Structure formats: structure tokens, C-alpha cells
Simulated scan of single mutants.
Amino acid sequence: MALNSTSETVSDKIPTSLIEDDGPLKRDLIAGLGKGLQVIEAFDQERSRLTISEVAQRAGLTRAAARRYLITLTHLGYVRHEQKVFSLTPKVLRLGQSYLHSARLPRIVQPLLYRLAYSLEEAASVGVLDHDELICVAAVSAGRVVSATLQPGTRVPAFWTANGRVLLASLPQQQIEAFLARLQLEPITAHTIVNKERLLLEIARTRAQGYSVVDQELELGLRTIAVPLKNFRGETVAAMNVSVHASRMPVEDIVERCLPALLKVQVELAALL
């Protein structure tokens, strides 16, 4: 008997574990893939060259397992081996480029972000949350090199950025407090807010007024103002900011000079997201 055209085959059927809140079942996961990505993530700006033992410690692997993953990644061209240390190769950028080239969000926001940046003659960027960090997914400098952190792919602590606070303000209060509980509240600059109660007040203020201003908390000389980007259902999917150098614009002027342009683009993007 012929199968009905609307029937699902075993290969087409989506496992219910993929759509349950509790997460996928262990049998549906490929442990080796996850551990290989953990090895790549073990490298960062402070630790660009690692030994096998260091990778094992940072990735939570045995030394023997770390060695095998590093050999595999070296064979595939993602890792370079020099004497007793390993480092990532530029091929790793392909992983990030796959997102930037295929994801809908960067493609939609880039043209309007370009217009925003050049209308104000300041840098602008769009970011999303990834665990406790903010990741930049689109940026336009408009000839103003304000900060090296305003580049696609860069990660910064969410609590000390305007984009990050806008995104955190969209979360349930319990989740925000869980974020804070995990943080090591150490000053990055003399302006960094490290008091938990004050950070919660800043998040509440951001939620109430619909935008956030951060003055040199992440980097000296860097001032930013951000607004949420919402889809047609009113859900916050990203945040968009304008960044200025402190020597060019007093913090008292940033709302008046930058917020109207941000809100205009925010409205236009709401119809597209």
C-alpha cells in the first residue's frame, strides 16, 4: 500500500526531545562534536597558545582525550602545532562566517545600521546574548574607530555594555539575578559598576525607559546608548547601539543627539524582524 504524501518517515520526523523544555535526550547528542567545540573554545585572547595539559584543563577533558582532539583539529586545519603548544588557525573564522553569511538577523540589520552610523557620523552595532556575554553580530564604524570590541564576532561582558543591559532587561527577574550570581564583580575601569544592587537598579531603569546609557564602564573613553530590537510579536531579539568617544560627546548629550535616530531605526526594523 502506498504511503500518504503527508505521512512522516522516520528520517523526517523531528524527535520530541528537540522541542521539549528539558532539552534533548543524551542518546540524541554526539558527544565528540561537543567536546571538539569545547577544545576550540579553550583558546581566547588571554590564552592564544596552549599545551595539551592546558587544553585538557580548560575543556574538562583527560590529557589523552585532549591530545586526540587537538591532533584531529590539526589534521583538519583548524589548529596549528608548534613544538609543544597549539594555537588556532584562521580557518576557525569559517565557523563564524557561516553564521554571519547565513543568519537572517545580520543581513536585515546591516543596511539600516549603515544608515544610522553615517547619519550620526558615529559607530553603531547590533548584538545578541550568549550566556553571560554579548556577541556583536553586525557593526558599522562610519570612519570612527571607537573600540576594537565593536566588530562582528567579539564577545564582551553583558552587564557592562548598553546592548547587554537592554537585552538583560527583557529577561525575567529571576534569570537576571542568576546571571549576577555567576559573575565575578571586578572593576574593568574606574567607572565599572560592581555593586549587585546598583546593577539591578540599572537593569530596572533600562526596562522602564526603553534604552540604556553606559559611560566608560567597559572601556575608558567609550560611551554607548542602546535600544532593544523587537520582532513583530514584541519579543526582544537583539539590541542596537551607537558608540561615541568621550572626548567628542558629553554623556549628558548622548540621549538627545543619538536616541531619536536609534528609535527611528528601531521602528523600521520591527516590521522586518
Rank of each mutant, 00 (worst) to 15 (best):
V214L: 10
R165D: 10
L273M: 08
R223F: 03
P187V: 09
R94D: 13
T192R: 08
H101T: 11
T192G: 03
A271K: 09
S5Q: 15
D253M: 15
L50E: 07
A246K: 03
T72S: 09
L171K: 05
G221Y: 12
H75K: 11
R155F: 12
A139P: 15
S7G: 00
L129V: 09
Y114M: 08
I188F: 09
E186V: 15
Q175E: 15
G34R: 04
V109F: 01
L201R: 06
Q151K: 13
A42Q: 01
D253S: 14
G96P: 06
L273F: 01
I40S: 01
A226R: 08
L185D: 09
P24I: 06
L112Y: 10
Q209D: 09
P228K: 06
L263P: 00
G143S: 12
Q174V: 13
L183H: 06
G234W: 02
V39E: 05
V109P: 00
D12L: 00
E186L: 15
E133V: 04
A162T: 12
Q97V: 09
D44Q: 08
R49Q: 14
G153T: 07
Q110G: 05
L116M: 04
S7D: 00
D130I: 14
L272P: 12
A270V: 07
Q174N: 10
A204H: 14
L220T: 10
P111G: 02
G60K: 04
S125C: 13
V267R: 02
R27P: 00
V145M: 10
V237W: 06
R115Q: 15
E46A: 11
P260C: 01
L37C: 07
T161N: 03
P228N: 03
R27G: 00
K91S: 11
A239V: 02
V242D: 00
L3V: 00
A65E: 12
Q184E: 14
R205W: 13
S11W: 00
P24D: 02
R223Y: 03
A271Y: 08
